[in-house]
């Protein structure tokens, strides 16, 4: 039986725990895809507005959001199979993301179709929910960058209040680049470093 001395045991315990964190860093692709999807949808929307194809705006959003959902479902089932572990933080993050996803759909599609408010309010509410999601993920994974990004989305929501409703969605692009894409790329480089460190 292989025995370690107490100091070796503490180091060994730390190493085992650190390896489970590698899986969290692997979630960078989720953040990246959910950053790119809305950017493409916003770009598509303004292109359609410029071309005066207003009836295509909703299908544009439905298309890109569906793409994101399909990717999320496929990626989460294969990632879970490959990773071999389920962490409490991942579980909580998955439920948080699903809850916010439902909120995004209600706020972005269902309520406007029910004419509860004008479409100009949508970017403000979406920014608010995105802020809650990212800030909470920052708390769950103990990552200050995400907390700041979440706060940025709230400030963005406030800032949108000062813009004409026609231009509010444009503010999404810089918000998402800073708030989603940047943390995704930071996480990706962490994941790569961790993977290299743990290679035999």
């Amino acid at each position: 039986m292989e025995e370690l001395d107490p100091e070796q045991e503490i180091r060994f315990i730390r190493e085992m725990i650190e390896r489970t964190r590698k899986i969290t860093a692997g979630s960078w692709l989720f953040l990246l895809v959910w950053g790119i999807v809305p950017i493409l949808a916003v770009a598509g929307m303004y292109t359609l507005v410029a071309l005066k194809k207003f009836s295509w705006i909703w299908p544009n959003w439905v298309f890109f959001v569906t793409l994101g959902i399909v990717f999320s479902l496929i990626y989460s089932s294969t990632a879970e199979r490959k990773s071999g572990i389920k962490t409490y933080a991942q579980n909580a993050a998955a439920y948080l993301a699903r809850g916010c996803g439902v909120a995004f759909i209600l706020v972005g599609f269902v309520f406007p179709l029910m004419k509860l408010y004008s479409w100009g309010i949508i970017p403000v509410l979406i920014s608010l929910i995105a802020g809650i999601l990212i800030f909470s993920l920052g708390g769950l994974f103990e990552w200050n960058l995400l907390k700041w990004c979440g706060t940025l989305f709230w400030l963005g929501a406030l800032g949108m209040g000062f813009l004409h409703e026609n231009y509010r969605a444009l503010l999404f692009i810089p918000l998402i680049i800073v708030g989603y894409v940047t943390p995704a790329l930071v996480l990706r480089s962490r994941y790569k470093k961790q993977s290299e460190a743990h290679e035999p």
Partner: peptide, 8 residues
Amino acid sequence: SILASVEE
């Protein structure tokens, strides 16, 4: 060590 830090 591993099981103490993950769900499964």
